Computed example of a mutant assay.
Amino acid sequence: MINKSITVLLVDDEISLLESVRRRLEYRGFRVIAVSSGEEALKVAQTEAVDVAVIDVKMPGMDGKEVMQRLKHDHPEMGVIMVTGHGSFSFKEEEVSGMIDACLAKPCDLATLQEAIQSAARKRADG
């Protein structure tokens, strides 16, 4: 799959990390939309065709779990990768079963993130 055909929505309240990951993914050919809140992510998803959302778990206001659930409710075909810098994920497996393509610890290796994005996008394309 060609990366530039994959649109990634990055959602993270850590602006420096958000911008760094955005630049690095764009350099690898992905189309990236970067936002710093769950509310912004929901707005973007209303107007943009997003293939895969990469969502930070811990954010002020709307947390990553709520963002993921609302995105999946409105866009069930969207791939979702959850990331956390807090060592563990704050949700039960049965709450998110079938909704998440990958869970990664921050900061994650870019090659690992890229493969997770490509894998999630392939699942949707093969659908």
Score class of each variant (00 low, 15 high):
Ser90Leu: 10
Arg124Phe: 08
Gly87Val: 01
Met62Gly: 04
Leu71Ser: 04
Glu94Trp: 06
Gly127Ile: 03
Ala49Ser: 13
Arg24Pro: 02
Leu71Tyr: 09
Phe91Leu: 12
Gly61Phe: 14
Ala121Ile: 00
Gln46Asn: 12
Cys108Ile: 06
Ser37Met: 09
Gly61Tyr: 06
Val96His: 15
Ile117Met: 08
Ala105His: 15
Ser90Trp: 02
Gln118Val: 02
Arg31Asn: 03
Val80Ser: 02
Ala116Trp: 05
Ala120Phe: 00
Gln114Tyr: 03
Gly85Gln: 13
Gln118His: 02
Val11Gln: 06
Ile55Arg: 10
Ala53Arg: 15
Asn3Phe: 00
His86Arg: 14
Arg122Gly: 03
Asp126Thr: 11
Leu17Gln: 14
Cys103Val: 07
Ile81Gln: 05
Thr47Arg: 15
Val21Thr: 10
Tyr27Gln: 00
Glu77Val: 12
Thr7Leu: 07
Ala41Gln: 08
Ile117Tyr: 09
Thr7Met: 07
Leu17Phe: 14
Gly38Ile: 01
Ser36Glu: 11
Arg122Pro: 03
Asp126Lys: 13
Val21Phe: 01
Met99Asp: 11
Asn3His: 15
Ser97Glu: 12
Met1Gly: 10
Val54Asn: 06
Phe91Ala: 15
Ser20Asp: 09
Ala102Leu: 05
Met68Ile: 00
Leu71Phe: 12
Arg70Trp: 10
Ile55Tyr: 11
Glu77Tyr: 11
Met1Thr: 08
Phe91Thr: 11
Glu93Thr: 15
Ala49Asn: 05
Thr47Met: 04
Ala116Thr: 10
Val50Leu: 03
Ile117Arg: 03
Asp56Ile: 04
Gly38Pro: 12
Val35Ser: 08
Met82Asp: 14
Phe91Asn: 08
Asp51Tyr: 02
Ala116Phe: 01
Ala116Lys: 13
Met82Trp: 15
